[in-house]
Write a protein that binds this DNA or RNA. Structure first.
Lengths: 337, 337
DNA sequence: ATGAAAGCGCTAACAG
DNA sequence: CTGTTAGCGCTTTCAT
């Protein structure tokens, strides 16, 4: 910057002002401004954002904490967050905390020390103590996918309850009265709501629910495999499975195939999370689709409005509808008496 | 920091030294050091990495440029880069440049202005002019997935040639003599090598290659659909398809299903990129697996060694083997005479 | 074993 | 319309 200024015989202040688009404001002559642009370009000068950040106490940087970026559900969300952030001049620092609450905590501290202007967080989700502090610290933050009623914080999630309710109701309409549920990580809002939807669909139809039909303890592929194995080994096999995530479904399918069973002839299935490949599975899968790209976009928009506003921002909760995509994995059962 | 220093009645210099782990070096008394740690923790003091970065001219930050983070191939690579980076104290700034060379250029400039210590780049890959400048700028950089022979720069890629060669040879061994190739983005090293492998497998077997069997122009789902449609509408349909990416395969499968054909009875198929769902497709897919997590890990390791060394780093090229995973999508043809 | 002070590159009062 | 100057929070030389 020194050099640029010297070359034109002008002060670095002027250079700074022109390059930060404040030429107008300070009524700098067009001639000077043009010269600055020209020389800066020639010399390949590019302002140091680190120094700038230190001075203006704003880094134009957001933090993004994700439990597993290789999960297509999260990577799609991440994509739309990053794209929108960049559109508004923010860079995104990514942290994959590997489904580990301790890492989540460390990531938050790290990002704070890097002076991010805001934070988007997909929490592991069983525990919110460590989130309390940061929400209260005044750092703009929005939570995605999971939420905590006790936290005064904006969030954007899917309507997991209704999504599950519709899916299970659809199974019941097809005369399934013994439906297994392979749930995800217990004590997360996502799971609680999906299981609640499952239960309420049963309740609505006055079908008694055998509690042992609910199995599983996390959202992974392995958990789906184990859950399905358990369900399939029951004395009376359920006629359908409701799976709480795409990964669970993959694991469950392995178990089902291993047992020599066919979807939907031997057992019907509905899976949460639509995927590009859902249509091309052994049996095209009926799924509960979430609006992942919208989740990402809205998350950034919410954060952006917080970062812009001076005052303590109001908390906004966005709940996006899901959509039941009917394919071929559910068979209509004959009513036997 | 002021406050911490004041509270113990010591200079900020001392606080800085203790907190940056240099207490030993400056032979600061254990008593003082302990006090510093204690008070800093009490006050919730956490050093400002932005100020630190400005002063020491190193941000402990790397840039990661990816064409599409929602593609599971890239998101897995990104994951292992980020995880390793964090292990060594680096934060990762992510940029999804949406398969657009112009955005790739902008992202590079942006990351430079943010003073990243190094850069990992999955280039769009047809053009390398803009990369020349940055490689020569001395910024540590490693290129992933695609590469440019003219660039003196470390890279880590899969052995695309051999992967394709093995896949197509396998088809030929199963007596397929009319194999369609749905290629990816032309003029990328990835595609060039895969198509070269395809050609050489033909050549090795002395089977004449009808050039019109090579179709397609990008790695996306849509391109796979179009490519397959073209192949399937030929007077004499190929007996097998070699697909250059996971997304291409998804599109191709759609076309195949639409035509009422079955894999592998009507047409055999091999796809590049193994996926968690490959085993559960209509027909379990025979694939060419790349070592994505290793690619990510090695990419960071290469970058790290560059960032540590003072001298101009040597360029290292790592080529990882692929693995043919045989499932059920290839049928052994009878030899007809 | 510790401190004073300079300075990283930039911006914003304040002063013309 | 432009320049002078102080200072963001930290590290590091030099001094003691």
């Amino acid at each position: 910057m020194q050099n640029v200024a010297a070359k034109i015989g002008v002060s670095i202040t002027t250079v700074s002002r022109v390059l930060s688009g404040q030429a107008e404001k300070y009524r700098i002559s067009k001639r000077t401004a043009d010269a600055v642009f020209k020389v800066a370009a020639e010399m390949g000068y590019v302002p140091d954002q680190v120094a700038r950040g230190l001075r203006i106490r704003r880094t134009n940087t957001i933090g993004l904490i994700i439990p597993d970026i290789s999960n297509p559900f999260f990577s799609t969300i991440a994509r739309y967050i990053e794209i929108n952030a960049r559109k508004y001049g923010y860079s995104t620092i990514l942290s994959d905390c590997q489904e580990d609450t301790q890492m989540e905590i460390e990531s938050i501290h790290l990002l704070q020390s890097r002076k991010v202007d805001g934070l988007i967080l997909c929490p592991i989700g069983e525990d919110s103590d460590h989130l309390m502090a940061i929400v209260n610290s005044g750092l703009p933050i929005v939570i995605v996918d999971r939420y905590f009623p006790e936290l005064a914080c904006s969030y954007v999630i899917s309507d997991n309850y209704k999504g599950a309710f519709e899916a299970v109701s659809y199974l019941i309409e097809n005369n399934h009265h013994s439906i297994g549920c392979i749930q995800g990580r217990i004590n997360t809002s996502v799971n609680i709501n999906r299981v609640r939807g499952f239960r309420d669909a049963y309740k609505k139809s006055n079908i008694p629910l055998d509690e042992s039909l609910i199995v599983g303890e996390n959202f992974g592929k392995k958990d789906g495999y184990i859950g399905a194995k358990i369900l399939l080994s029951r004395k009376t096999r359920p006629t359908a499975i409701f799976s709480a995530s795409n990964l669970i479904s993959l694991g469950a399918m392995r178990a089902i195939l291993e047992e020599g069973l066919t979807i939907p002839d031997d057992i019907s299935m509905i899976s949460f999370d639509d995927q590009p490949y859902s249509d091309y599975l052994v049996t095209p899968m009926t799924t509960v689709a979430q609006q992942t790209s919208e989740i990402g976009q809205i998350a950034f928009t919410l954060l952006h409005s917080q970062m812009k506003s001076e005052s303590k921002p109001m908390v906004e909760s966005i709940i996006l509808p899901t959509k039941l995509i009917i394919r071929k994995s559910v068979k209509k059962l004959e009513l036997t008496v």
